[in-house]
Amino acid sequence: MNPCEQIRDQIIFYLDDELEARERVSLEVHLRSCAPCRDLFEQEKCFLETVRRAGPVHKASPALRTRIKETLEDVPPPHAAPAALRQRIERTVWGSFVTTAGGHFRGALWRAAVILIAFVVGYGVFGRYRIYEHTQQPSAFASMAVDRHQRHLRDQLPLEVVSAAPDQISAWFAGKVPFKVELPNYQEMSGQERLYELEGARLVDYENNHAAYVAYRMRNRPISLLVTSQQIVEPSGGEEIVSKNITFHYDSIDGFKVITWADRGLAYALVSDLEERGQQSCIVCHQGTRDQDFIRSLKPRSSFWK
């Protein structure tokens, strides 16, 4: 392909603002010295400007605008309890405490004490394994990780480097992210059976910074690992599980299991569709026998988990 053909292929991408800075400069330099390409560029530019001036093709009527406003006003805030339920709960709660002669009050107090004792006992028993039993909403970091995982599955997040060699992936990230990405190569070192495949990596944007995205596959099931600086995100939300002095946050979002945590200045997210909490995805960095204890600590102890 001669230079003119290459440039002509790029003209439309230039006009759509889809070229990188280096390519834009190269095209502009060529146009300055090539009249036929410049003519073609002007024709294409004129065509696109004409089409773009034609918009908007349709305009919403004032009646539709009013209808949409009214529709939105009628929608209750997300996850808000219906007004009738709210009143019922308020009546129940206040009824328990306000009722005269202390009978109901003592009853309510007694029930509260029983609940509190049950909570403390339960906390003591399960607390050995899980410091926090409560569950919070998934964090933005966990949601972002699942979104990127899904996009990768839909081929909307192509890998920028394709390699099964951890050291090549680590080297590729050097200078692209403000931290060192070190991927363990345990399989090769141990001579064990390969339980997972490293596919490649790319950069993704998060909070106006680059994060490292690494794609794995285990038994033909994809696993995504995201790494960014802990200065940008502090993992939170979900179910908290403490193991080896690290707090892991487990969430299930859109059917995907995501585990987020921070360690030595970096924040991590692992996404998969593996069983239970997806704890087997940790194997991409912890395949050693001694690590199995650590992975088992993330395994759910009841059948409540999907």
Binding site: P56, H58, R65, K69, L72, E73
Partner: peptide
Amino acid sequence: GNPNFSFTQTALQYLDSLYGFAMT
């Protein structure tokens, strides 16, 4: 005070565009 308020304010500015796409 309504959590939907900020959404309404922002999203209504795309009404013409969305209607145009709906017609498309």
